[in-house]
């Protein structure tokens, strides 16, 4: 899991505000939440002395920016997943959207579930319904704490 501090250490730390935010710390938070991109920090790109930092930052953020991560930052490690469906049944969105299926321990029946087990491993669809998504996001962790194998991770 990447932390804000790790990102901050790789920024210019000048609080120049060119990214549109008041501090480099705020920008680090923005990067982690994927509201900002590295390109928003122009000094980092343009000034040669930051070259090493830029390289480090790209490396650090690569998993967050990779195609694997959904828009909520969810990464599913297929190779670890048991397909047990614990996360599917525990997810509060599934419980609310699919009361006759996943909420009572069965496969989804409503077409509105966001987590489901396909080919023996979990899959996330309709990611915009996840509680970690969007402006009103909350730090839900129902699909993490119920997993026997740490197959779901958020970055």
């Amino acid at each position: 899991m990447v932390s804000v501090m790790e990102i901050y250490q790789l920024l210019p730390k000048t609080n120049c505000k060119k990214c549109g935010l008041p501090t480099c710390m705020a920008f680090a938070v923005g990067l982690l939440g994927r509201e900002k991109t590295i390109e928003d920090c122009t000094p980092l790109l343009e000034e040669a002395k930051y070259e090493k930092k830029l390289e480090g930052l790209r490396e650090l953020l690569a998993p967050i920016l990779s195609a694997d991560a959904t828009e909520t930052g969810m990464i599913i490690h297929d190779e670890k997943c048991y397909g047990c469906g614990n996360c599917v049944v525990a997810c509060p969105v599934n419980v609310a959207n699919d009361p006759k299926g996943t909420a009572i321990g069965r496969g989804p029946v409503s077409g509105k579930a966001i987590l489901m087990v396909e080919d023996g491993v979990v899959k996330c669809v309709n990611v915009d319904e996840c509680r970690r998504f969007g402006p009103n996001k909350v730090l839900c962790s129902a699909c993490i704490v119920t997993c026997p194998s740490k197959a779901i991770e958020f970055i």
Partner: peptide, 25 residues
Amino acid sequence: PSSSHPRHMSRFSYFPRGEKRQRGY
């Protein structure tokens, strides 16, 4: 059961909602 009966906890014994267990685990 997570290893031997993988859906045991999700279908029946811990995670699902039920008649008298509306709030789940």
